[in-house]
Measured scan of single mutants.
Amino acid sequence: MTEYKLVVVGAGGVGKSALTIQLIQNHFVDEYDPTIEDSYRKQVVIDGETCLLDILDTAGQEEYSAMRDQYMRTGEGFLCVFAINNTKSFEDIHHYREQIKRVKDSEDVPMVLVGNKCDLPSRTVDTKQAQDLARSYGIPFIETSAKTRQGVDDAFYTLVREIRKHKEKMSKDGKKKKKKSKTKCVIM
């Protein structure tokens, strides 16, 4: 069974824990209790493949930012979460993405942009803004509501699919490099 290491990042209060708990335990946590770091595991079937999701729910508070490099190193894919009623959390996505790329030393890291709290009427981040940002990053965008469960499975499952595509691409690139290195030079 394939294991996928997913990391949920975003500013404090955007609903990272609520999304994760909704996926794992099928219930909505409405009281806000700032996370330092929590880890969850769940076995699911995605596109006919049974897999184990190892999900790291991270601290959004700035005082825990020193811990970010460590979990970013171990993560295979990242859910970059903002709240649709919090423009600052949307603007912060850029910083999370840049930090992930720096730590992973790669421009090509599996990510999904997630606009959470889409059940709320007080939207300050337009869907088109988020779609445009995701398009500019070359990553999928999904709106979710941890409260109603809308888009929750889709967000995590899409990230797994992005990781699969990335692994497939990397193995193809690896095979191309191996083929090239088999060419021999004969000096007579």
Rank of each mutant, 00 (worst) to 15 (best):
T2H: 12
T2K: 06
T2D: 13
Y4R: 15
Y4W: 07
K5P: 13
K5I: 00
L6V: 06
L6M: 12
L6F: 08
V7K: 01
V7E: 02
V7Y: 02
V8C: 03
V8P: 02
V9R: 14
V9D: 02
G10N: 01
A11E: 15
G12H: 14
G13S: 09
G13T: 04
G13A: 02
V14C: 08
V14S: 12
V14G: 07
G15Y: 01
G15C: 00
K16M: 15
A18S: 14
A18T: 14
L19C: 11
T20H: 00
Q22V: 01
L23K: 14
L23N: 12
L23C: 13
I24G: 01
I24M: 05
I24N: 04
Q25S: 06
N26M: 06
N26L: 03
F28S: 01
F28G: 00
F28K: 00
V29E: 02
V29K: 01
V29Q: 03
V29C: 07
V29N: 02
D30I: 03
D30N: 04
E31H: 02
E31N: 08
Y32M: 09
Y32F: 13
Y32C: 05
P34N: 06
T35C: 15
T35E: 15
E37D: 07
D38I: 00
Y40N: 00
R41C: 00
R41K: 01
R41M: 01
K42M: 05
Q43F: 10
Q43H: 08
Q43V: 10
V44T: 08
V44F: 04
V45T: 12
I46E: 14
D47K: 05
D47Q: 05
D47T: 03
D47R: 04
G48I: 02
E49L: 03
T50K: 08
T50F: 03
C51E: 06
L52K: 03
L52I: 05
L52C: 06
L53M: 05
L53Y: 13
L53N: 14
I55A: 15
I55G: 11
T58G: 05
T58E: 03
T58Q: 02
A59P: 01
G60H: 15
G60K: 15
G60V: 15
Q61S: 02
E62G: 11
E63G: 03
S65D: 10
M67N: 04
M67G: 02
R68S: 02
R68Q: 03
D69T: 04
Q70F: 15
Q70S: 13
Q70I: 07
Q70M: 14
Y71A: 15
Y71V: 14
Y71L: 14
Y71N: 13
M72N: 09
M72E: 07
R73V: 09
R73N: 12
T74H: 10
T74R: 06
T74D: 12
T74M: 07
G75H: 04
G75Q: 02
G75P: 02
G75F: 04
G77Y: 01
G77L: 13
F78P: 01
C80N: 02
V81Y: 12
V81K: 01
F82K: 00
F82W: 08
F82Q: 09
A83V: 02
A83H: 14
A83K: 13
I84W: 13
I84C: 14
N86S: 08
N86W: 00
K88M: 12
K88Y: 05
K88I: 14
K88D: 15
S89P: 04
S89Y: 11
S89A: 14
E91P: 01
D92G: 05
I93A: 11
I93N: 03
R97C: 15
R97E: 09
E98A: 04
I100D: 01
I100L: 10
K101M: 13
K101V: 12
K101F: 06
R102S: 10
V103Y: 15
V103E: 14
K104M: 08
K104G: 08
K104R: 14
D105T: 09
D105L: 11
D105K: 14
D105Y: 06
D105A: 10
S106F: 09
E107Y: 14
E107P: 12
D108P: 04
D108A: 09
V109N: 03
V109R: 12
V109D: 01
V109S: 08
P110K: 02
P110D: 02
P110S: 04
P110Q: 03
M111Q: 01
V112W: 04
V112R: 00
V112C: 05
L113M: 11
L113D: 01
L113S: 01
V114R: 01
V114I: 12
G115Q: 02
C118T: 09
D119L: 14
L120W: 10
L120Q: 07
L120H: 13
L120R: 13
P121R: 08
P121M: 11
S122A: 10
R123K: 11
R123T: 12
R123Q: 12
R123D: 13
T124I: 08
V125F: 09
V125P: 09
D126W: 06
D126R: 05
T127I: 10
T127S: 08
T127Q: 08
K128W: 05
K128C: 07
A130W: 11
A130N: 07
Q131D: 06
L133P: 04
A134M: 05
R135E: 08
S136E: 13
S136V: 07
S136H: 12
S136D: 14
Y137A: 06
Y137V: 09
G138K: 02
I139A: 08
F141K: 01
I142Q: 06
E143I: 02
S145C: 06
S145A: 14
K147R: 08
R149C: 09
Q150P: 15
Q150K: 05
Q150M: 04
Q150N: 04
G151V: 12
G151R: 06
V152P: 13
D154V: 06
D154C: 05
D154L: 08
A155S: 11
F156K: 15
F156Q: 13
F156L: 15
Y157C: 10
Y157G: 12
T158Y: 07
V160Q: 07
V160G: 03
R161L: 05
R161G: 08
E162S: 09
E162Q: 06
E162W: 12
I163G: 09
I163N: 02
I163W: 00
R164L: 14
K165S: 10
K167S: 09
K167Y: 09
E168I: 11
K169E: 08
K172Y: 11
K172P: 13
D173V: 05
G174E: 15
G174R: 09
K175C: 07
K175N: 06
K177L: 05
K177P: 09
K178S: 09
K180L: 10
S181E: 07
S181V: 13
K182V: 03
T183N: 03
T183Y: 14
K184T: 04
K184N: 08
C185L: 06
I187Q: 03
I187T: 06
I187H: 07
M188K: 10
